[in-house]
Design a protein around this nucleic acid. Structure first.
Length: 680
DNA sequence: ACAATGCTAAACAAAA
DNA sequence: CTTTTGTTTAGCATTG
């Protein structure tokens, strides 16, 4: 009965590596829809275009870097000149500030546009991620500039005041004026770059500007995506685990850099990233420079410093005093690819945890509601409500008065991402509850992955409407083999699909047809007449027959594997192995039982409540079959040497806390669930 | 260019 | 008669 909560069908964060190109094999478009979504042909086109997008981004980024440096220089000079009490005309500042706020507002993709992209699944996850990061980086840059600009204005005011009392120094004034001009030019340049970016997106057809929205015009910040929304969207296209833990990643270095490059500017992101949200220094979004600055006042409260140890993820360098720590911070964790990569990973960690917590809280609430428990849980109760209300508001609010609720998930019109996560609301509170995570990820360089990861990942597919990267045949086989009798009726297979994958809770007609089609088509599925009808079984020999072909014949899977096995959480690896190396009969263990951790405890309990723990298959299998976890981190685009098929034969545990309750979804009819994938 | 594979759509039939 | 189950065919995309 609790399963019904899955219908909330929330897109969870997941790594790009988890969202394989394969996932986008199909559009989720119901047959009834008039406009068939772009599928294959567009895909290659987009891939090509993404390269262009990349270069645009690179361009923007480098321009931003230049601008940043210039600004820093300017700032220094400004400070110097400020001390010398430069003078100005009264009119000057006003004239020199033609750079309006609007101008500095990021040309971000609107939520609608983003949602559209997400829904159409036109972009690969990687591409989406890139886009999002791009947008985010742009905004952060702009916010930084904006902040600096404000400061500058204040300084000018100050100078003006001083000028009233002091003598005049036209020279200084001119200098300042030129600096101002330069600054404006930088801003202009940035603006143009952003427009270029947006234009390119449009040209590529990735963005379709809605009629109501001005094409290029500067949208007020509130209309664009606020950082929290970006975070949310990012969450939707990135995964639970640390995608590219790129110590050695050079390909994605750009992405990484852009993501965190300028989070020093106070922004709404701080709602999420606020170091105060984390007491143990898990969050480290601020750039080192900034940190050193901002924490000089509160020397011993640095979230990255504690017990004489640098708490930068994966660092743990010993620093006797705070000063040496600062030194270490600036030298070892300067703004470079590595730091930003780690920063980004940390963001993902946090986001994933936030999501997880939010979801489980919501479940708890729903459970309690269902059981008519007068909730006394102080924390859990209010939040779901909060979220719900925000969503109900969002539709009208986001369009009517965008600025009214800045942190509302200006929701995407789509049913795809219903309620569940308010980006910022939960975050701050939730952070306190999750201690161990940082360690987990900081350790990940050399620590084998635990079954918790696996369970977590399965949860992912259970809850995120992401198409599993497996063929129907693999899934069907999976379902059948998981059953105690190794046989299932068609309906039971259906139920397994809907139970295990949120994706299969919609478009039932389509995928059920596919299931039947596969059952009939493949010899490996054998229909066995039964007393009560017929059940389907798997002819393992037959199945393995096709296997070698499949390895070479399903390159998408291989590619997925290549990209994922290095840094993807093990479940993905395991699942992929399951679908790829189907030579080996996977060992089905309930890993979540053996090692109930934060991530899967709730689900374990849930399963238990359902009385689903019928079989504890003691087929002991190492959840992470001797494969090396994440030491090597590779960018998505990097082609790695093909995975050795032998390696895939290792024992793998597909966590399946099987719930064979036949009336699994009786309370919920997934059939013909209204799918409004099109934007209104 | 071709074959193999996978997916969707759809027609059709038999059973429930 | 409707729905479910099962079979089959066709067309498209991707990959090697």
């Amino acid at each position: 009965m609790f399963q019904c909560v899955f219908s909330s069908s929330v897109l969870q964060p997941h790594s790009t590596s988890c969202l394989f190109k394969h996932l986008f094999y199909h559009s989720a478009t119901p047959a009834s829809q008039k406009q068939p979504e772009p599928i294959y042909s567009k895909k290659t086109e987009i891939q090509r275009q993404t390269v262009r997008a990349h270069s645009v981004k690179l361009f923007i980024f480098s321009a931003l870097q230049v601008a940043r440096q210039l600004l820093l220089q300017q700032q220094q000079q400004q400070q110097v000149s400020g001390l010398k009490s430069p003078k100005r005309n009264d009119k000057q500042p006003a004239l020199q500030v033609p750079v309006s706020v609007a101008m500095m507002t990021p040309q971000v993709i609107t939520p609608q546009q983003m949602q559209q992209i997400l829904q159409q699944q036109v972009l690969s996850p990687q591409q989406l991620q890139v886009l999002l990061q791009q947008q985010q980086a742009l905004m952060l840059q702009q916010q930084q500039l904006q902040e600096f600009y404000k400061k500058q204005q204040e300084q000018l005011q100050l100078q003006l005041l001083q000028q009233q009392h002091a003598g005049k120094q036209p020279k200084e004034q001119q200098q300042v004026a030129t600096q101002q001009l330069a600054f404006q030019q930088q801003l202009l340049q940035m603006q143009q770059l952003q427009q270029q970016h947006l234009l390119s997106l449009q040209r590529q057809g990735l963005l379709t500007i809605q009629p109501g929205q001005p094409a290029l015009p500067l949208q007020p910040l509130a209309q664009g995506m606020i950082p929290t929304e970006l975070q949310q969207l990012w969450k939707e296209v990135t995964s639970a685990h640390s995608a590219e833990e790129s110590t050695g990643s050079n390909h994605s270095s750009l992405d990484l850099t852009t993501t965190c490059v300028s989070s020093s500017a106070p922004s709404k992101t701080s709602l999420i990233m606020n170091p105060h949200a984390s007491t143990n220094g898990q969050l480290s979004v601020h750039t080192p420079k900034r940190e050193s600055l901002s924490h000089e006042e509160h020397p011993h409260s640095h979230p990255l410093y504690g017990h004489g140890v640098c708490k930068w993820p994966g660092c743990e360098a010993v620093c006797e005093d705070f000063q040496s720590f600062l030194k270490h911070l600036n030298s070892e964790h300067a703004l470079d690819d590595r730091s930003t990569a780690q920063c980004r990973v940390q963001m993902q960690v946090v986001q994933q945890l936030e999501l997880q917590l939010a979801k489980d809280k919501e479940r708890l609430q729903a459970m309690m509601t269902h059981l008519h428990v007068k909730s006394t849980e102080p924390k859990a109760a209010p939040q779901p409500l909060n979220l719900v209300s925000s969503v109900t508001l969002s539709k009208s609010a986001s369009e009517a008065s965008p600025q009214s609720l800045p942190h509302t998930p200006t929701t995407p019109t789509a049913p795809i991402t219903p309620v569940t996560q308010g980006p910022s609301v939960i975050t701050t509170t939730s952070m306190h509850t999750v201690g161990p995570i940082r360690r987990r990820y900081s350790d990940k360089y050399n620590v084998p992955i635990s079954s918790a990861d696996i369970a977590q990942n399965q949860e992912f597919y259970k809850n995120a409407e992401v198409r599993p990267p497996f063929t129907y045949a693999s899934l069907i086989r999976q379902a059948i083999l998981e059953s105690p009798e190794k046989q299932l009726t068609l309906n039971e297979i259906y139920n397994w699909f809907t139970r295990m994958f949120a994706y299969f809770r919609r478009n039932a007609a389509t995928w059920k047809n596919a299931v039947r089609h596969n059952l009939s088509l493949h010899k490996c599925f054998v229909r066995v007449e039964n007393v009560k009808g017929a059940v389907w079984t798997v002819d393992e020999v037959e199945f393995q027959k096709r296997r070698p072909q499949k390895i070479s014949g399903n390159p998408s899977l291989i590619k997925n594997m290549q990209t994922s096995h290095a840094y993807c959480t093990p479940l993905n690896a395991a699942l992929q192995q399951a679908s790829m190396a189907e030579n080996s009969i996977p060992l089905y263990t309930t890993a979540s039982m053996g090692n109930p951790t934060l991530g899967n405890l709730a689900s374990a309990i849930r399963e238990e409540l359902n009385g689903a723990m019928e079989h504890t298959n003691s087929n002991e299998s190492d959840s992470s079959p001797g494969r090396s976890p994440l030491q090597a981190v590779h960018p998505v685009h990097v082609k790695e040497e093909p995975l050795d098929p032998e390696e895939a034969e290792g024992p793998l545990s597909l966590v399946t806390t099987a719930n064979h309750s036949p009336d699994f979804d009786h309370d919920r009819d997934y059939e013909d669930e209204p799918v409004n994938e099109d934007m209104e």
